[in-house]
């Protein structure tokens, strides 16, 4: 699947869509950034509630392409600005981490 599918298939709000045709190969769900660093695969989508700038720093370092912010958490402007600099997409949804994980699991592994 590709980045733009996060909006097209699941209706997530594209806070910053980045390059929509970028392929997503995997996903990782965690709110602990050290855990994300250690375990998330390159080319993943990160499913989390950590809506702040440091999440972008972590994503950029390990090659995460997109972040899905769950539970409709507010995304601060400086996070969006950092995402633009690093070309990492940000999506937002009212769904929980569990629900988003389920949706992506079906697409990527189902």
């Amino acid at each position: 699947m590709k980045l733009s599918d996060l909006s097209a298939l699941f209706g997530f709000e594209a806070v910053f869509p980045a390059e929509g045709t970028t392929a997503i190969v995997d996903a990782y769900t965690s709110d602990l950034l050290s855990d994300v660093m250690a375990k998330a695969a390159e080319g993943s989508v990160l499913i989390t509630i950590q809506a702040h700038k440091n999440t972008i720093a972590v994503a950029s370092l390990i090659g995460i392409r997109a972040i899905v912010i769950c539970n409709e958490r507010a995304v601060p402007d400086d996070m969006v600005a950092a995402a633009k600099d690093e070309a990492i997409a940000i999506y937002r949804t009212t769904k929980t981490q569990f629900e988003v994980s389920g949706l992506l699991y079906r697409e990527l592994r189902g």
Binding site: E42, N54, A57, I62
Partner: peptide, 27 residues
């Protein structure tokens, strides 16, 4: 926070280090 690591990653890419090692160094 994270700026130093971002610069390190860029510099390692610049000298042609392999992506696995760059990732480990970044972590």
């Amino acid at each position: 926070a994270g700026k130093a690591s971002a610069e390190l990653k860029k510099a390692l890419k610049g000298i042609g280090a392999d992506s696995g090692s760059i990732r480990r160094a970044a972590i």
